[in-house]
Write a protein that binds this DNA or RNA. Structure first.
Lengths: 189, 189
DNA sequence: GCATTTGCCTAAGCCTATTAGGAAAACTAC
DNA sequence: GTAGTTTTCCTAATAGGCTTAGGCAAATGC
């Protein structure tokens, strides 16, 4: 019998696509096995277990997202860079909800350390160069920005914003205006 | 054989406690059945299915959280109210991670409409009375605050903030300072 | 006390995850 | 090319979890 030729990378990619289709929490080894035309048990030659697969998808999403951010902020500064970076997160969450959810998976410390996670913090910190913030305010600001971007993406996706009154598009641009203003006039302690 | 005397409310409460112990996604009918000393199938007399139970936990958490917020902001205004409201969300997320996750469950529109969800938006809007914001900026601000609080809680819980440098306690208070300043000097469009 | 409703049970089917052990394909090295 | 090794896939089996169907006994209403 000829082999299907599955690899861990293909499996991870397929899992990411499946996650975008049915939600990260509904990604199952059984579904993937069917999709590849092999038996479930065969997948254990490529990934340790279901958790391992989810971790791989998380790492994929983190790296993919970091690359997109790096691209978007290249050559930009100040509010321009802020808008670009924020837009990448929001768009990614909307276009790849499953992958975005995967990127939120809690990783164990070693895995997290080897992930693109640090690049994210690093790039957010980079756009703060366009503003006049010293440590430790810079770190506070990085965390605040991370909170807003992640919170906004999550709430918007989850329908947390009522579909009424001002549309989310406008809220988004006004939120960025607000954050820009805040960073330009960061309050003294 | 005497009955265990399970009710939907007890079940929901137990599920909420279990969620705080093992994580919302790991709440299972099987575990609850064991905890009540009945068979799994018996639970279907009280809840329609696993999804129904999760929905009930979500509604419980939303209501509980709304009550806590209402209590916290009573008699406060301005930054005082902001800090109180924000603190409730953060503390609840840390003390009841499972319930907090449940509160994020995506509900179908009718269920959501009947939930305490609206009270949350309402109360956030209320604290903005201490600031000089007109519509539609008020709505933008409500969404921004919601994003920050939710995002912060999620990232802090998930270990998204590296455990290094300034501790999260300080970031939290500086974040509130920043939001207060932002609301006091909301940028014109 | 008797009828009805309600709570719980057994039985069974379906899905997913995981492990163990085996066979054949693919690859390596002469 | 062929012998040996590794890799990939398989079957078989176990263990959980979710859900439905049908039945009996406990609680409740009159």
């Amino acid at each position: 019998m000829k082999r299907a030729g599955v690899t861990a990378e293909q499996l991870t990619r397929a899992a990411a696509e499946l996650a975008d289709e049915v939600g990260f929490e509904n990604v199952t080894l059984a579904t993937l096995a069917r999709r590849f035309g092999v038996k479930e048990a065969s997948l254990y030659s490529h990934v340790r277990n279901a958790r391992d697969l989810k971790t791989r998808v998380a790492l994929l999403a983190l790296a993919e997202l970091a690359d997109l951010v790096a691209d978007a902020v290249a050559g930009r500064a100040g509010k321009d860079a802020l808008v670009a970076l924020a837009g990448v997160y929001r768009d990614y969450a909307r276009e790849h909800p499953g992958r975005y959810a995967a990127a939120q998976l809690r990783l164990d410390p070693e895995t997290a350390a080897a992930s693109a996670g640090a690049r994210h913090a690093q790039m957010t910190r980079a756009i703060l160069r366009g503003y006049d913030l010293q440590e430790p305010d810079q770190t506070h600001a990085v965390r605040l920005l991370g909170s807003v971007f992640h919170g906004y993406a999550t709430l918007e996706m989850g329908g947390g914003f009522s579909h009424s009154a001002p549309d989310t598009e406008e809220t988004w641009s006004r939120t960025l205006d607000a954050l820009d203003a805040l960073l330009r006039h960061w309050p003294a302690p």
